[in-house]
């Protein structure tokens, strides 16, 4: 809580952000490189899926991040809404496009994997469909932010939408699974077997760490950009009112 209060001060936040950014970026690059090496060269091909299983190492972390970012967004929205924490609002806002990016990546890699496995680029599989709906939740949140000119009001309203969306995510996910099990014959090969071999787990965990730190490494500069943009807008506003006053005189 103390740290949270500290971070409410934009100057102090920028100091922290500048301090940890190189470390986070470095960690992301290292784990990403190591993860990709293991994923592409140093892990076994699947006995059923063959080499296509390697798509999993970029796909599963992306799918995981799509949900993780939405949770962060909703959590930050709640903090911003309840305690009027200015930086939480900015963090929620800047997480949305990153989360949407991970979601698109998950959908894209999922359909790349689906082509050899299912024989179609897109299958109305329960997971694919619920991730697609999640993407639209992100887009709605971003559209609301863009539509409202007053930032303080936009933050509060977008926070309400994020929270409403978040409590609905389990309902949506469940409904899509239900829909799928009723409409589709269960003949598809499961993406991930019940157990996963250690040789496959190492690259997967490395990639998850890489995605997580890449997210933080992208989030920090975008928060700083947003803070700078707001400061600039304020300065311009002051300039304009001053100019208007001068004209009146």
């Amino acid at each position: 809580m103390n740290l949270l209060n500290d971070l409410a001060n934009p100057v102090r936040f920028e100091r922290y952000a500048r301090m940890i950014f190189p470390a986070v970026l470095g960690f992301a690059l290292l784990t990403g490189a190591a993860g990709l090496y293991f994923a592409l060269f140093n892990s076994p091909a699947d006995y059923q899926q063959g080499e296509a299983v390697r798509i999993m190492y970029v796909h599963v972390p992306a799918a995981w991040m799509s949900m993780f970012c939405y949770s962060v967004m909703a959590g930050a929205s709640a903090v911003g809404f309840i305690w009027k924490h200015p930086l939480a609002d900015v963090a929620a806002k800047e997480t949305a496009p990153l989360g949407a990016g991970f979601t698109i990546l998950a959908l894209f890699t999922g359909s790349l994997w689906g082509k050899p496995m299912w024989g179609a680029w897109w299958v109305w599989d329960a997971r694919l469909t619920s991730v697609l709906v999640l993407l639209f939740l992100y887009l709605g949140y971003m559209a609301l932010w863009r539509a409202i000119p007053d930032k303080a009001r936009a933050a509060r309203l977008a926070a309400i939408l994020a929270i409403v969306g978040f409590v609905n995510v389990p309902v949506i996910k469940f409904s899509v699974e239900w829909w799928n099990s009723l409409h589709q014959p269960a003949s598809i090969i499961r993406a991930d077997g019940p157990t996963i071999d250690g040789a496959m787990l190492t690259p997967l965990l490395l990639m998850i760490a890489a995605y997580m730190s890449a997210y933080v490494a992208m989030l920090l500069p975008s928060i700083r950009n947003e803070l700078t943009a707001r400061r600039l807008a304020r300065l311009q506003f002051v300039d304009e009112t001053r100019a208007a006053e001068l004209v009146e005189q």
Binding site: V133, L134, F136, L137, L139, G140, A143, L144, L161, V164, G165, N168, V171, I172, F174, S175, V176
Partner: peptide, 10 residues
């Protein structure tokens, strides 16, 4: 429409 459609899915 954009906001509400995903919430209408269930």
């Amino acid at each position: 429409a954009i906001i509400v459609s995903p919430l209408y899915v269930p």
